[in-house]
């Protein structure tokens, strides 16, 4: 018995040590930081209790950032789910150029986020950017400050770029899910004279449920932690129109050196993500595990 325990300890120890060093300690440090006023150097001595949390939660920029995150969570799912599903169903049919089309759809997802961000930033430049030039060619004019520079459009523009970037992931997951639908069901449906549309609605989509729910979870967590694309496209601007919780905390931390406030914001982000993740698991993903049990 002790031998087995020693073996387990031996194999688990390295992973555990890495987890402690790179996950647990930083999380604990962030919590500790959030209770102090600290500039990033010198000893952490100025204990302020929960003052940093009060300042974060009463800051309009942060509450707006939370709303932006939620808009992106909902917007991403509302845009990518139907689009991804439609494309996956289309690409699942045998047709000419299927492999090529799949690749094209998937390429943006493989592209490094920073590169994709810089490319879109250049495309969206007002006056000199490709998109403005194309609009001008057909007699239209983009907004004066550009799509990324106009507070009313900036968040929606970011959402469009995110959809372009992450649609590929949805499509590839749905395609994989489609492979798991047993062929016999289609054959049986055909024998019963079901139309293509009926087959999709009654068989394919319900059986794709677990895949869609898992994708929804990944998409939600990604949207809550959104940082790179926003940082490159707008830096959270203009006029804080695209600030997310992550850009807020980086701005407060590394830019303004208010590490206490950044620590508090990161704890709030962690709690929001945790609560939403648990809720999602409890109310949406649980259906899948229950089905398994049954």
């Amino acid at each position: 018995m002790w031998r087995k325990r020693a073996e387990i300890a031996f194999f688990v120890a390295p992973a555990l040590a890495l987890l402690v060093a790179f996950v647990a300690v930083p999380v604990a440090t962030a919590v500790q930081m959030s209770l102090y006023r600290w500039k990033g150097f010198g000893p952490m001595v100025d204990f302020v209790g929960l003052a940093n949390y009060v300042s974060v939660l009463t800051n309009d920029v942060f509450t707006d950032a939370l709303v932006h995150n939620l808009i992106i969570v909902v917007g991403s799912i509302l845009l990518q789910l139907p689009l991804g599903l439609a494309i996956a169903l289309l690409l699942n049919r045998k047709m000419w150029g299927q492999g090529l089309l799949r690749t094209i759809i998937f390429v943006p997802y493989v592209l490094a986020e920073v590169i994709a961000g810089v490319v879109w930033f250049q495309l969206l430049q007002p006056q000199y950017g490709v998109i403005d030039t194309m609009l001008a060619a057909v007699g239209l004019q983009g907004p004066d400050q550009g799509f990324l520079g106009t507070p009313e459009y900036a968040l929606w523009t970011v959402l469009v770029v995110l959809t372009w970037k992450y649609l590929g992931l949805a499509v590839i997951l749905f395609l994989a899910g489609l492979q798991g639908v047993p062929e016999e069901l289609y054959e049986a449906a055909q024998l019963d004279g079901a139309s293509w549309w009926q087959v999709q609605r009654r068989i394919t989509i319900p059986l794709l449920g677990p895949t869609m729910r898992t994708w929804g979870f990944l998409s939600m967590i990604g949207s809550l932690q959104l940082f790179d694309m926003v940082w490159i496209l707008t830096g959270g601007g203009p006029a804080n129109a695209t600030t997310t919780m992550a850009t807020f905390l980086v701005n407060e931390g590394t830019k303004r050196q208010n590490f206490g406030i950044a620590g508090a914001a990161s704890v709030v982000l962690f709690v929001v993500a945790l609560v939403l993740a648990l809720a999602y698991q409890r109310f949406i993903l649980s259906r899948d595990s229950k089905e398994d049990e049954a």
Binding site: P126, Q127, D144, Q145, G146, L148, T150, T234, G237, A239
Partner: peptide
């Protein structure tokens, strides 16, 4: 200012 200065 130049066009789009808010995001320049």
């Amino acid at each position: 200012f130049n066009k789009g200065f808010l995001s320049t």
